[in-house]
Amino acid sequence: MTAEQPEPLPGRQRTVVVTGGSRGLGAGIVQSFLDSGDRVATCARSETDAVRAWSADPAYEGRFLFVGADIADREQTTRFVKEVVARWGSVDVLVNNAGVARDGLLALFSDDDADTVVDLNLKATFHVSKLVVRNMLAHGGGRIVNISSITGLTGYRGLTVYGATKAGLDGFTRALAREVGSRRITVNSIASGYLRTEMSHGLDEGQLGQIVRRTPAGRLGEPDDIARAVQFLVDDRNDWITGQTLVVDGGLTC
C-alpha cells in the first residue's frame, strides 16, 4: 500500500467499477482502490501490461476483475456489469472514467470523430450509469464519480466536441444527483486539469509547456492527483456532497 492512499474503513470492502481502467488516469484510479483494499472491476477494449500485472498479483487475488469490453457497445457494457454483479453481488462505487479525445477545429471536424466522442463520453456513460444506478437502488445506495474536464468549463481551442461532452457530463451529474439523492446515492464530477498521461487531450508538447507555465502549481497533473479526489468523494462519510463538480487542476482555472 502506498503511503498517500487512504486506509479503508474497518470491515468495509467496497465493490468499485472503473470504466476504462487499463491505462492512464483510469489505471491510476484502479491502483488507488486496490491499494485501499477494495474489490475493483474494470473494462477496456484490450488488456495492457497494467491489467496483466494486477491479474497476476497474489495481493489482488479475488478482488480484481478485468473484462474485455468496448464501453461504447451497450451489449458488451451490459455483459461487463452483469459479470461484476454475478461475482460480487452489488456495486458500491462507479467511476465513469472511460473517454476519448479527438482534436481539431470544428470547421474541419469529421462527423465520424464527433460521433465517436459523443458515443463514448456521453452515451456510454449514460448506459453504464443506468445499469449501476439500478443496482444501487436495489441495494440501498452508492457513490458515482464522473471524470470530467476543465475543458468543459473553460473551453479550449480545438476541443469543442470533447469539451461539450465534458460539460454534458457535469450536467448529467447534477440531474442524476437530484434524481437519486433520496436513495443514498451521491453523484459528483471531477473536472480534471491537464495530466501527463497517454491521452492529454491530444495536446502537443508545446501546448502542454504553455499550460504548465500558466498553472499555479507549476506542473501537469498525475493520475494520483485525481485518484485522491475520487477517494474523497466516495468516502462513506461524505454523503452530503452531491451534484457538484470538483475542479482538480493545479489552480489553472482559478
Binding site: 439500478r134 437502488l137 437519486v180 436513495r183
Partner: peptide, 13 residues
C-alpha cells in the same frame, strides 16, 4: 416515478 424505478430494479435484482 422513483419508487417505480426502485421496484423495477429490485425485481430485476
Amino acid at each position: 416515478s422513483l419508487e417505480t424505478a426502485e421496484l423495477s430494479a429490485t425485481l430485476e435484482d
